[in-house]
Design a protein around this nucleic acid. Structure first.
Lengths: 113, 113
DNA sequence: CCTATATTTCCAGAATTATGGAAATAAGGA
DNA sequence: TCCTTATTTCCATAATTCTGGAAATATAGG
């Protein structure tokens, strides 16, 4: 991951409504949620929600698909993991970070982040 | 962790210089780095660096201590882990997130995040 | 006390971002 | 085609953030 992608992803998450929205999608899992359901859950006007969905999508953190009349959004987990990995890359100069429980993210890889 | 703390931490990281700075400190480990060394490594004017250090510190992501004439900064790993955990909280509706390698952060807890 | 080093504070201009109502677009069914 | 539902685009206002030079503050040593 490159620095400007990471900045874009962090900026996308650094907003009250978008953070709540992203977490909602993280918790919803692979099946995702329709835009209308999100607007209702978060009590945000449609036009504002659409703006925030666009921001998250531009940052690569969520995906959309159309299903009948609804547009379904879901979290893009691998993008999220790439971000977490980037943040903690080469952490603690390789010393293991004790006694703090840092460096968690990098220990379970070998898969496509 | 509460939502507004998470937003503050993400906003602090969502800036080119601050992200590079934070990662530099993550990689430097517990011994940290002096402000001057950071300014040199990142090629940022002192006043700008000081602004960014203040932002990161206000968000709880870094700590400072004085050592002789220098002020040493280091990453606050537990705050970082609290943020990562918050982002992925209850992820994938408990289904395990396969086939994506998400949900990494929460699997190694039992320690003070 | 004077000097050198290290870092922060002050400031104002430039740039970016969030908001929500109203209108526009898209899809599906009668 | 016409109607209903679902979502996005447009727009102007308001608010926030970044920048870096110059001056101020803090520490240490001679």
């Amino acid at each position: 991951m490159k620095a400007d992608q990471a900045v874009a992803a962090l900026a996308a998450l650094a907003q009250e409504h978008r953070l709540a929205l992203f977490r909602l999608l993280v918790q919803a899992g692979e099946k995702g949620l329709a835009a209308g359901a999100i607007a209702e859950a978060l009590a945000i006007p449609n036009s504002s929600l659409s703006f925030h969905l666009t921001q998250l999508r531009a940052a690569g953190l969520i995906e959309q698909r159309r299903e009948h009349r609804s547009i379904i959004y879901r979290a893009h987990y691998s993008a999220m993991n790439a971000l977490l990995t980037y943040l903690m890359e080469n952490c603690c100069a390789g010393t293991g970070c004790d006694p703090e429980p840092a460096c968690l993210v990098q220990q379970e890889e070998g898969k496509s982040l």
